[in-house]
């Protein structure tokens, strides 16, 4: 044991054992998640088959189709308005969803973090239940509230404020409302996890040094909660950008987001290469967001504290 050689042999045996132990998990993920992703990359460079699937002919049409469209008769390329507008709308809706969940989620997380120890658990449970509840059911619940004969229209008509129901369902507003609703717990939990560790003696110190409540919020609490705020934003932005269920139920098939556009290419569209290229585009945006996160929070995590 005292010889470095013996130690090294033991260590390499330990590492070999560790590889063996992690092998099942790695194989499962490789076979049913990571591996297929590489096939998507491959498919995006092939030609579409007549009934879906692909033909084994290299082609850039899938990628060209993301931003451009070929006129059926003249064969000229122009900007694919439909795709680009869906792409832009998806990014915008996801960003707005992130900002709105941030505006509501931060005070909510702060509220929970400042409850007395005994009741804090209860508030936390109340935010955790929706987090664990089926997203489909929660979207369905929103649907019932904003339908033409739903709760909101019903109450407004009873009060005589409107005579005919307001069309809320199948609009961008409906998608936004639904996404804010389903993703709010994803914002609250990481922000709470951060605020829970906030040292309120720092807040006292700031008050002691003449900071007003607003200044304490902007100069002390928010800067210290920044890692949680960024984590929450990423956790909301990524699924929002790839959202499929919420826009397809609340958008009613007319107001598409990127997720629905991708689905279309594998369904009615029968353009698997285009669908693959759109999927990779979505993944690239997500990767960019993750890199932003690592840059801003990852480096702070390793800072000595």
């Amino acid at each position: 044991m005292t010889q470095p050689g013996a130690n090294e042999a033991e260590r390499s045996r330990d590492i070999r054992k560790r590889w063996l132990l992690s092998l099942p998990a790695l194989l499962i993920v490789l076979a049913a998640a990571t591996g297929p992703l590489l096939i998507v990359v491959l498919y995006s460079f092939l030609s579409p088959g007549p009934y879906g699937d692909v033909q084994w002919q290299p082609s850039m049409d899938g990628w060209i189709g993301v931003f451009l469209e070929r006129d059926m008769f003249t064969e000229t390329l122009s900007i694919a308005d439909a795709h680009v507008s869906i792409l832009i709308r998806s990014v915008m809706l996801s960003l707005v969803t992130t900002v709105v969940t941030l505006l509501f989620g931060f005070p909510t997380a702060y509220f929970i973090a400042t409850r007395p120890e005994r009741t804090r658990e209860l508030w936390l449970l109340l935010i955790t239940i929706p987090f664990w509840t089926n997203l489909l059911i929660r979207t369905f619940a929103v649907l019932q509230i904003i339908r033409n004969d739903g709760l909101i229209n019903g109450v407004l008509m009873k009060l005589g404020l409107i005579t005919r129901p307001i069309q809320m369902l199948f609009t961008d507003g409906a998608i936004l409302t639904g996404m804010v609703y389903v993703y709010l717990p994803l914002m609250v939990l990481p922000v709470y996890a951060n605020l829970e560790k906030l040292d309120f003696r720092l807040v006292e110190a700031a008050y002691d040094l003449y900071a007003t409540p607003f200044r304490v919020l902007t100069r002390i609490i928010i800067p210290l909660a920044k890692p949680g705020l960024i984590a929450g934003s990423i956790l909301v932005f990524i699924p929002a950008l790839g959202a499929y269920v919420t826009p397809s139920i609340l958008g009613g098939g007319k107001n598409l987001m990127l997720g629905n556009l991708i689905e279309l290419q594998f369904g009615q569209g029968r353009n698997w290469p285009l669908g693959s290229a759109l999927s990779i585009t979505l993944m690239l945006i997500v990767t960019a967001a993750l890199l932003f996160y690592v840059r801003n929070v990852g480096s702070q995590g390793s800072r000595h504290g």
Binding site: A33, L37, G242, L258, S279
Partner: peptide, 28 residues
């Protein structure tokens, strides 16, 4: 060596939007 790679692999399904994984599995 390979520890970070393992983390990345195991957590990979969390980093990719569900719709992309869904499409990949459909094809595969």
């Amino acid at each position: 060596r390979g520890l970070t790679l393992k983390y990345a692999f195991i957590n990979q399904p969390l980093m990719v939007p569900e719709i992309v994984t869904a499409v990949a599995l459909l094809i595969f």
